[in-house]
């Protein structure tokens, strides 16, 4: 996947994502509260970052090709952060039905080198209707 750069992250991004997702945790918009709890500032919703990763993968591979997305939040994303989204193919194999699958290692890195998210993704054709489950 070509690297994607996003940012700098602004308060507007977090407010828009809060409205869209329903995640109104005040740590994402109330700087005074965040600082009173020991954070240096408000920080982004983890799923904001993960969501951009998911859509970037789908835009690259095709909308029906994303089979699995797995991730862990490593560090907060602060206002002003500029993020780089990377996904590298680590393996290509066949699944139980003989369909080709590409395994990717995914990382989101801030401009100062902090890894804010790490994870993995699987890309490949969707299962045929007769191979799906209920």
């Amino acid at each position: 996947m070509p690297e994607r750069r996003v940012g700098p992250i602004r308060q507007e991004h977090l407010v828009r994502y809060a409205g869209a997702s329903g995640d109104f945790n005040p740590f994402h918009f109330d700087a005074e509260l965040a600082r009173s709890r020991g954070f240096k500032d408000v920080f982004a919703q983890g799923l904001f970052t993960a969501g951009i990763l998911g859509e970037t993968l789908r835009a690259w591979a095709g909308p029906a090709m994303l089979r699995k997305l797995k991730f862990r939040f490593k560090e907060p994303v602060w206002l002003g952060d500029e993020l780089t989204f990377r996904a590298v193919v680590t393996e290509i194999h066949a699944d139980d039905h003989g369909r080709r699958r590409a395994e990717l290692e995914c990382r989101v890195i801030a401009a100062d080198g902090r890894e804010v998210l790490s994870g993995s993704a699987t890309l490949g054709e969707p299962p045929r209707p007769d191979q799906r489950t209920t």
Binding site: L66, L69, F71, P127
Partner: peptide, 12 residues
Amino acid sequence: LQGELEFDFVRP
């Protein structure tokens, strides 16, 4: 604490 999240997609 938030741990790992994993999404499995069958179709769009």
